[in-house]
């Protein structure tokens, strides 16, 4: 039983608390970059100094799924690597968010073939889809801001 029911459902306390937690969470995202392909080049660009994801509190990549709360799936996911991706996702602690970076992860892109998974949402839930092949750094930043907005407006577990 969470605090929410202790306060008797949604009221001024829980909504304020949600807001505060959302505000804190959205500025301290720890991404797990699951980088496989060409989109990784743009991932490098956004995380390096020129575009600087640090401005949004999401610069510090954690390569252990246990320490990360945002799975950034960057690049084509093949049938061969799909079980690995699923396992990484399963190992992450709640709350966790998933960004599909690039059209390959959204829909399979133009790799409509025997080897490619047609969108990662066939194997795990996705919060934000960033289209583009690869998306420009500006698009990625917009995608990240959308996720922040989502987190801010969410009800949180406490």
């Amino acid at each position: 039983m969470g605090l929410r029911s202790l306060f008797g459902g949604d009221n001024v306390v829980t909504t304020k608390l949600d807001e505060a937690i959302g505000w804190a969470r959205k500025y301290s995202l720890f991404p797990y970059p699951f980088v496989t392909a060409c989109c990784g080049m743009e991932y490098m660009s956004v995380s390096a100094s020129h575009y600087d994801l640090d401005r949004f509190g999401a610069a510090f990549p954690r390569f252990s799924p246990r320490q990360a709360d945002m799975l950034m799936c960057v690049g084509t996911v093949s049938q061969k690597i799909a079980p690995v991706l699923r396992r990484v996702y399963d190992q992450m602690c709640e709350p966790k968010y998933v960004i599909a970076f690039g059209v390959c992860t959204c829909t399979g892109g133009f790799y409509d073939n025997y080897a490619t998974v047609q969108g990662i949402d066939t194997i795990l839930p996705v919060d934000v889809y960033i289209p583009g092949c690869p998306p420009r750094p500006e698009t990625v930043i917009q995608g990240l801001m959308l996720l922040q907005e989502k987190i801010q407006k969410q009800k949180h577990e406490y």
Binding site: Q79, I81, A82, P83, D90, D112, N113, Y114, T122, I123
Partner: peptide, 26 residues
Amino acid sequence: HPLRKDYSIDKRQPLVTAEGTNNSQI
């Protein structure tokens, strides 16, 4: 064997799940 001419490009095979694999991938 996918590059054989009689294997069509979009012939997909079921996804191997983390549980079902014989550990070749994990």
